[in-house]
Computed example of a mutant assay.
Amino acid sequence: MNTSTSERTHVILVVEDEFLIRLDALDMIRSAGFEAVEAVDADEAISILEARRDITVVFTDVQMPGSMDGLKLAAAVRGRWPPIKIIATSGNVRIGLDDLPKGGRFVAKPYTKAQILTAIAEAA
């Protein structure tokens, strides 16, 4: 049985419409020992969440095209899957903790691997 925090079964869903930013985030998360799943928008993220029961954290961009932005996605996740933790990010929008569901975290872009891993550790 795995005992360290990074080896526990945390599965992070990365929701980011910018291809290179998404790849970079996935690499940071995977290199830290977590499993990472990707979605290009909120609609794809919801489909993944409906299909998988092992997602523990949603790491989402705030500004995305589609039917929902990252804040609406965060609210939808909290409503349907309350145990899932939320981490939101943006390079253009500053949000307050009141803009996210209770327990949600915000990390401004550009972020570092250390910032992402700290947010995951605090959320988990």
Score class of each variant (00 low, 15 high):
18 E>K: 08
19 F>I: 13
20 L>N: 10
21 I>E: 09
22 R>Q: 15
23 L>T: 09
24 D>M: 15
24 D>R: 12
25 A>L: 15
26 L>R: 13
28 M>K: 09
28 M>V: 11
29 I>D: 07
29 I>G: 00
29 I>Q: 06
30 R>I: 12
31 S>Y: 05
31 S>R: 14
31 S>P: 02
32 A>C: 12
32 A>I: 10
32 A>D: 14
32 A>W: 10
34 F>G: 06
34 F>C: 11
34 F>P: 03
34 F>H: 15
35 E>T: 15
36 A>R: 05
37 V>S: 06
37 V>Q: 04
38 E>T: 08
40 V>D: 04
40 V>C: 09
41 D>G: 13
42 A>G: 14
43 D>C: 07
43 D>Q: 15
44 E>H: 12
44 E>D: 13
44 E>W: 06
44 E>C: 07
45 A>Y: 08
45 A>W: 04
46 I>W: 06
46 I>N: 03
48 I>G: 07
48 I>P: 03
51 A>E: 12
52 R>Q: 12
52 R>H: 10
53 R>P: 04
54 D>G: 06
55 I>H: 07
56 T>I: 10
56 T>F: 08
56 T>A: 11
57 V>D: 09
60 T>G: 08
60 T>W: 10
61 D>P: 10
62 V>R: 00
62 V>Q: 04
62 V>G: 03
62 V>S: 07
63 Q>L: 12
63 Q>V: 14
63 Q>A: 12
63 Q>Y: 09
66 G>T: 07
68 M>E: 00
69 D>R: 10
70 G>F: 00
72 K>M: 12
72 K>Q: 15
73 L>R: 02
73 L>H: 02
73 L>S: 02
74 A>R: 01
77 V>E: 01
78 R>M: 00
79 G>D: 14
81 W>C: 01
81 W>Q: 04
81 W>A: 01
82 P>S: 08
83 P>E: 14
83 P>M: 10
84 I>E: 03
84 I>H: 06
85 K>N: 05
85 K>L: 01
86 I>M: 11
86 I>H: 03
87 I>S: 00
87 I>N: 01
89 T>A: 14
91 G>N: 04
91 G>V: 03
92 N>Y: 15
92 N>I: 09
93 V>Q: 12
93 V>N: 03
93 V>E: 07
94 R>D: 14
95 I>E: 02
95 I>S: 04
96 G>A: 13
96 G>C: 10
96 G>L: 11
97 L>E: 14
97 L>H: 11
97 L>R: 12
98 D>V: 09
98 D>P: 00
99 D>Q: 08
99 D>S: 06
100 L>W: 11
100 L>A: 02
101 P>M: 08
103 G>P: 09
105 R>F: 03
109 K>G: 06
110 P>W: 11
111 Y>N: 05
111 Y>L: 14
112 T>E: 05
113 K>M: 08
113 K>Q: 14
114 A>S: 12
115 Q>R: 11
115 Q>T: 04
116 I>R: 01
116 I>Y: 01
118 T>F: 07
118 T>N: 11
